[in-house]
Design a protein around this nucleic acid. Sequence first.
DNA 1: ATTTGTGCAAATCGTTTGCATCTGA
DNA 2: TCAGATGCAAACGATTTGCACAAAT
Lengths: 129, 129
Amino acid sequence: MKLQDAGLRCTRQRIELGRLLFAKGDRHFTADLLHEEAKLNQIPVSLATIYNTLQLFMTVGLVRRLATGGQKTWFDTNVSEHHHLVLEDESRIIDIPAGYLTVHQLPPIPEDTEIDRIDVVVQLKRRQS
Amino acid sequence: MKLQDAGLRCTRQRIELGRLLFAKGDRHFTADLLHEEAKLNQIPVSLATIYNTLQLFMTVGLVRRLATGGQKTWFDTNVSEHHHLVLEDESRIIDIPAGYLTVHQLPPIPEDTEIDRIDVVVQLKRRQS
DNA sequence: ATTTGTGCAAATCGTTTGCATCTGA
DNA sequence: TCAGATGCAAACGATTTGCACAAAT
């Protein structure tokens, strides 16, 4: 299973959170949303552990953090290269299907650096009717 | 001048902050950096006013907020369409020159929304020698 | 004179941390 | 057994807000 593949200890909390996150396809979530969902599913886990676990999952590549421009940190279980639509109020994040938004002609970057990743964020606003 | 063009009251703080921000070309900054700079320049202004003023400048389009993926909010005095390189530790934000990274083939978006803007963030990390 | 802005301190929000206790290997 | 994980509460950093005072029109 994913946890031991990643060299992580299989604790109750991690197993249950992993189940929530990876059971039903790709998802976008914040620490708080995941905490709420855990509560709904009767999974005993503190918010602190949620944060620790997400940090951990991130360092082993199970989830990635998104650049959304908002105050809350959003995560994505889809760690492959793809981009996002972000609704105005940050209530929702939507994947941009592959094939759109291919990025060409990378810019020059400073001497001692390399590209870690590229986030394209399309900010949407509600259309004033 | 820019302030009255935008319909804002010309207060000491706003004038001085505007001078700092727009005097020497495009800049990237956080509320805190601007506060520091104001102090260095003997401009009496509280951090709260910095925040209020930036909010205001943003709503009238004098500055824009950047999606960097970090915890601090970065602003940009260049409000035209362009994109950014972000250093790993967020210590620095660099403009991507026009002509790079043109975005093609916009994805379908939900019914009642329109595109507000597009942020492309190229996250850089230090190259391990 | 009236409206709006400012500064301070306290409040808020998301996230992290210290530490005592528990648990998986 | 015992290194590592958890939970709680306190700490933290960025940002916002309430309110008394000051300044702009």
